[in-house]
Amino acid sequence: MTDRFQPRRGTFVFDGDCAFCTSTVNALSRFVAPDVDYLPWQRADLARLSLTADQVEGQVWWLHPDETSAGGARAFTRLMRRGRWPWPVLGRLAELRPVVPLAVWAYRWVARNRHRLPGGTPACAVDRAQDDRRPPS
């Protein structure tokens, strides 16, 4: 029997080595969803989280005991739904079928360009080939 970790509440798994990701998570924890656990994947027991290094190196992840795990844009919409007003409304809107492609595109654009965004460093760059292998979020 595998000892699978089940978070007690929502857990947002991110790249703790990326300065842009870390500053974004600091803002999210302060202004959007303070009652969520934010976990750098470098400090996580990925096997217990049922995640792989390939999964977490390419995108953020949302884990919750009552939901299916989600990565990328879907992870952000689930995080927003746990936030303070107006974030839950925006999270639900971003999950509407006509909006999903835009949310996925925006997430992927930010992920590919995070090393160029405020707070980003060259160490924040994501391998383009790895990004292109990821399934749509």
Rank of each mutant, 00 (worst) to 15 (best):
V13G: 03
D35G: 11
Q59R: 12
P98R: 08
V60T: 06
A19P: 12
L90K: 12
D17Y: 15
R30C: 10
D37T: 09
R74W: 07
C18G: 04
G120A: 05
P136Q: 07
W109M: 07
L46C: 02
A70H: 02
Q6H: 14
R108I: 04
L96K: 13
L117F: 02
L63K: 01
P34G: 03
Y107E: 02
L46I: 05
S50F: 05
R128V: 13
G16A: 06
P86I: 03
A44V: 13
R92I: 10
A111I: 05
L93Y: 14
R112P: 06
A106Q: 08
A106E: 06
W85R: 15
V32M: 02
M80Q: 12
A125E: 11
R78W: 07
W85V: 15
R97K: 11
L117G: 07
S137I: 08
Q59P: 11
W62Q: 01
R8P: 15
Q55D: 15
Q130A: 14
L117M: 04
W85Q: 13
V100T: 13
A125I: 14
S137E: 14
W109D: 07
G120L: 05
A75T: 00
Q42L: 01
R134M: 06
P118D: 10
W87Q: 14
R92T: 15
T52D: 04
